[in-house]
Simulated scan of single mutants.
Amino acid sequence: MSMDIQVSMDSLHRLADRIAQLGDMDTRPLMDELGAAVVSQTQRRIDSEKTGPDGAPWDPWSESYAKTRHEGHSLLIASGDLSDSLEHILGISGDHAEVGSNLVYAAAQQYGLDMSVIGTHRRIQIPARPYLGISTENEEDLVALVDDFVDRKLREM
């Protein structure tokens, strides 16, 4: 199962007039920069911030699960696979980048999980710990990237 978020030029209205000056610019290099930046922002969220894109802290582990963890483990980090699995790809037309993970459990971490295990009396409950998304600070960083990209392209003209 994979999941993704999309960062497109449509979400960056503030720069629309400047970008229009560039005409039919190839946006693939820009989308590649934005995708890489979102991956980096998301890895930082997982590795150190421990909050969703909205700034809300993630729910802590349950008491019983916390007893199975050891030093070096933290929320969404046991071996680092989730953070390491994050990648970005460019859309065919080059006008957007998709960011996500293809790990089977990635969606359960993002959206949460509540299910009974068939044939047992066990219930698995994982609270949602959204890590994909763009915070206000992330958006400001992305806007600055677009602004720098546009400046470079206008200087080349």
Rank of each mutant, 00 (worst) to 15 (best):
E33V: 10
L34Y: 07
G35T: 11
A36S: 15
A36D: 14
V39I: 13
V39Q: 07
Q41L: 14
Q41D: 13
Q41M: 14
T42P: 04
R45Y: 10
I46V: 08
I46A: 01
D47S: 15
E49I: 15
K50A: 11
T51W: 00
T51N: 08
T51G: 03
P53C: 05
D54R: 03
D54P: 00
G55E: 08
W58N: 06
P60N: 11
P60T: 07
W61A: 01
W61D: 01
S62C: 03
E63C: 07
S64H: 07
S64R: 14
Y65R: 06
K67N: 09
K67Q: 10
E71C: 01
G72Q: 11
S74P: 05
S74Y: 12
L76E: 01
I77H: 08
I77C: 05
S79R: 04
S79P: 04
G80M: 08
G80I: 07
G80F: 04
D81F: 05
D81Y: 05
D81P: 04
L82M: 05
S83E: 02
D84N: 15
D84E: 15
S85D: 15
L86D: 00
L86Y: 04
L86K: 04
H88K: 07
I89M: 13
I89K: 15
L90P: 01
G91I: 04
G91P: 07
G91C: 08
I92F: 14
I92H: 14
I92Y: 12
G94Y: 10
H96K: 11
A97H: 04
A97D: 05
E98A: 14
V99A: 06
G100R: 01
G100E: 02
S101L: 07
S101A: 12
S101Q: 10
S101N: 09
N102P: 11
V104E: 13
V104W: 06
V104G: 09
Y105G: 00
A108D: 03
A108N: 02
Q109T: 02
Q110H: 05
Q110G: 00
Y111I: 02
Y111G: 08
G112F: 02
G112A: 07
L113V: 08
L113F: 13
S116C: 10
S116W: 08
S116T: 10
V117W: 12
I118W: 10
G119V: 12
T120H: 13
T120W: 09
H121G: 15
H121M: 13
R123F: 09
R123Y: 12
Q125W: 03
I126M: 03
P127N: 12
P127L: 06
A128K: 03
A128R: 03
R129G: 01
P130K: 09
P130F: 11
Y131A: 01
Y131N: 05
G133V: 09
I134R: 03
I134A: 02
I134K: 00
I134E: 04
T136R: 14
